[in-house]
């Protein structure tokens, strides 16, 4: 442990579980919310406004003894497309990759348009993922064609 660089020690290491690194500092609590991390029993370590060469200020979330499912990773990719997903088993990194933003998502987000047919009939919502030049993500409803932005994104 003594040889680890200081930045690694800001939020302490975990034996088993998942680390979400390179989260934009302003999105840390949003990511917590969509993953429902305030309602789980696992230990959660959070760091925010940490210095990062790449991002200026970044956030990091470590969840002990938890590995996220595809559906959850997709949510992270929408809220924090720059995030790196790191899985750790027995203090060893077993997986490390930037989350991949899907081109289409279905069934996990509610269309923001209250008059959209998907909010009135038993229809699975489907969106095309649109990435702005600034990296922000918006979802275009396949049915009503309205955009759902990050701010009013409601996961289901």
């Amino acid at each position: 442990m003594e040889n680890q660089p200081r930045k690694e020690l800001v939020v302490s290491a975990i034996e088993n579980g998942t680390v979400l690194d390179h989260i934009p500092a302003k999105s840390v609590f949003h990511v917590m919310k969509i993953l429902d991390l305030d309602n789980i029993e696992n230990q959660v370590l959070i760091g925010t406004n940490l210095d990062s060469k790449k991002f200026g200020k970044k956030g990091i979330i470590k969840v002990r003894d938890k590995f996220f499912k595809n559906k959850e990773v997709n949510k992270i990719a929408i809220i924090a497309p720059s995030a790196t997903l790191i899985e750790i088993k027995k203090y060893k990194v077993t997986y490390k990759k930037q989350v991949k933003t899907p081109t289409e998502i279905s069934g996990s987000v509610k269309c923001v348009n209250p008059n959209c047919i998907t909010n009135h009939e038993n229809i699975i919502s489907k969106f095309t993922v649109i990435k702005n030049p600034d990296g922000e993500i918006k979802l275009e409803c396949r049915y009503c064609e309205k955009m759902t932005g990050k701010k009013n994104m409601e996961f289901i």
């Binding site: 269309c111 348009n113 008059n115 959209c116 047919i117 998907t118 009135h120 009939e121 229809i123 409803c141 396949r142 049915y143 009503c144 064609e145 309205k146």
Partner: peptide, 24 residues
């Protein structure tokens, strides 16, 4: 409702002409 015609076009075996779906 907006999007109703797109949904109908996905489930119908015959073609759909949209004569107006809400404000869409």
């Amino acid at each position: 409702r907006e999007g109703s015609a797109r949904f109908a076009s996905e489930v119908a075996p015959v073609p759909i002409i949209n004569a107006g779906d809400g404000a869409n």
